[in-house]
Write a protein that binds this DNA or RNA. Structure first.
Lengths: 192, 192
DNA sequence: AATATTTTATCTACTAGTAGGTAGATAGCG
DNA sequence: CGCTATCTACCTACTAGTAGATAAAATATT
């Protein structure tokens, strides 16, 4: 079905746009040019821009959380799972010109529809919980090494670190800034 | 001089708007209503929006760097200076509805004028250098404690942490998220 | 000191272009 | 025929920015 693909194409284009320029940084006209469909036709698939934004946030959330859960099966230790987490947030930057959708949405958060905001905070909570579980396992596996004394705080700090590292990289479109910001964390992980 | 104040009022209003909603999130009409001047009159003071954005970034940069340099004189140890740094980024959040101007600009960075971008990256570099100097002093004062082995990396990590913590707080307009994200860092500092 | 000129800061009124969104026609398909 | 997906054509509201008038204040000239 080519018809269904149009919807996916629109979501792909919109996600890319938001991650590059923010929710206010693109228009249905931009999408129209990118997907090769008339501007008005977009409204058939997504009646309002809010619908579109909510849809891409929900899809993004699902995809990322599936990936993270996959890491739990894929890597045997919490240490390796956390390394994969940092690498995943690095890969989300692509050429240094994109951010995590969640980060891109946060700046203009007040102008978003409540449903979009809900999707965003659900995502953030889920990622934080995932991280917290990793740190809890870490404290069981190798206690009293400075890790896992407060898995909740470690989780919040790690999420802030990778999101902040994305901002640093985005500010000059240079992935080296991401690597610099995450170096110490990875170094401390490596000592386990 | 009331005349000069108008310019300052415009910059104050614009800075607040950008930090709340991003550069694309406000218009000259919004500013007009806020400052009590006709929309067209704003162009007298700032011919283009880019001029205005560059001006507020330059002013912000100067103010923040002056504050940070003040901390070096105000607090005797790098440890206390770093604690003040984390507190300063917390205070920039105000009620949880504002971000560091630099963070707010970074999402829509591609659409900004080159001069604005320059001002942003200069600011980022200056803050990173300030942090690096603190970590270098820290490694002299109390070496071999896990700190200061790589002041450059510690600096990048700390900047990413506070900026990421701001995002976390902004996402739910709750300062507690900032505190959670910075708790481990402050805890590790406190052990010195 | 009185008058003329320029500058400053604002206004009203307008432009071209873009935003998100709507109405209604149309083409293809089961 | 009815449904899906698209189109053309349009709307209203808003965007940044411009043109030109105006009143007051600062500066220069007589």
């Amino acid at each position: 079905m080519n018809k269904v693909d149009t919807k996916t194409n629109l979501m792909d284009a919109a996600e890319q746009q938001v991650r590059q320029k923010g929710a206010d940084g693109f228009s249905y006209a931009d999408l129209s040019a990118q997907v090769g469909i008339r501007k008005a036709s977009i409204h058939y698939h997504f009646p309002t821009k809010s619908d579109l934004l909510t849809a891409i946030m929900a899809r993004y959330s699902q995809e990322v959380l599936t990936t993270l859960d996959g890491y739990v099966d894929l890597f045997p230790t919490p240490k390796e799972q956390l390394i994969a987490f940092v690498a995943f947030y690095r890969s989300a930057l692509e050429e240094g010109d994109k951010l995590c959708l969640c980060v891109a949405f946060t700046v203009g958060r007040d102008a978003l529809a409540p449903q979009t905001r809900l999707e965003i905070s659900r995502f953030r909570d889920a990622v934080a919980t995932w991280l917290q579980n990793r740190f809890e396992q870490l404290s069981c596996a190798s206690p009293a090494r400075g890790w896992g004394e407060d898995p909740t705080a470690e989780s919040a700090a790690t999420l802030a670190l990778v999101e902040g590292a994305q901002l640093a990289a985005r500010s000059t479109a240079d992935l080296a800034h991401y690597d610099a910001a995450t170096k110490c964390f990875l170094g401390r992980l490596g000592q386990l």
